[in-house]
Amino acid sequence: MDIVVTKPLLARSPRVSSRWNRILRQFTRNRLAVAGTIILVFLGVIAVFGPFLVADPRAQDVPNRFERPSWEHWFGTDELGRDILARTVNGARISLASALAAVAVALTIGTTIGLIAGYLEGKAGLWLMALIDLLLAIPAILLAITLAARLGPGLTSAMIAAGLVGLPAYARLARGAALQVKRQEFVTAAQVTGLTRAGIIRTHIFPNILTPVIIQATIGVGNAILLVSALGYLGVGAQPPTPEWGRMLSDAQKFILTEPYIAIFPGVAIALTVIGFNLAGDGLRDAFDPVVKR
């Protein structure tokens, strides 16, 4: 009970607010991190509002196929005469949503497993982590394509596969942090007051591991976008006519000898998005942990 009362006090204490100010200052002073954030905000706006502003990404216009970029079709048209701008913009929504979903899955399950393993320690904890380490012993992309193929090719399978591949990172992070935090005095104090294990994990250990998990998640979204698009490219992810970036590139490769421009814009979109997440993630890490910063 004690601790629940101190929580709001903590939030208002000047020391805490100055810590957040310092972190925010660190972050905004880092030009690359700001650039990354601007890219992400831009992409977010496109993902949310873009699809309302562009043409139907599935509307075919075969007589006007393979049109070079023009005023009418800014990015040109593909092999079925579909507007590549419309498909790329709609792809932003699909890629961001599926990557966020994959990270949400990885983060929730991974953090829970890691917290439990860290808090329990002993044999149960070791077994849990051994299971997690097994996932790391298989090359990520191979694990993901096998799983996606077995679940049946599709965007949902790709999301689940990308989530599973990302999961060990959160589990390890959460376990390490839980092991560290649980030895601190306030956790012992909470145990003495009679708080249950689940209660201690929730109210004391979880808030303390939030920072590294958020940083990992930011970079994780970028990696999930790369993985989901690779699965789309290999044919086990999003299926046509879904305008998913990886799938679009796989279709574009069939015409690469004669119409190479179709392969440009979806690729730029993937690269830009992942750069945005990597820059923002690096910036967050430096801001939260100035010691590591170089």
Binding site: S229, L249, S250, G267, A271, V274
Partner: peptide, 22 residues
């Protein structure tokens, strides 16, 4: 940064376009 951010298959396609097609 670009190296870790671009998809492998797209890097391959760009190299194909530049050195193979053009």
């Amino acid at each position: 940064l670009i190296g870790i951010s671009i998809p492998t298959f797209w890097l391959g396609m760009i190299l194909i376009i530049v050195f193979g097609v053009e």
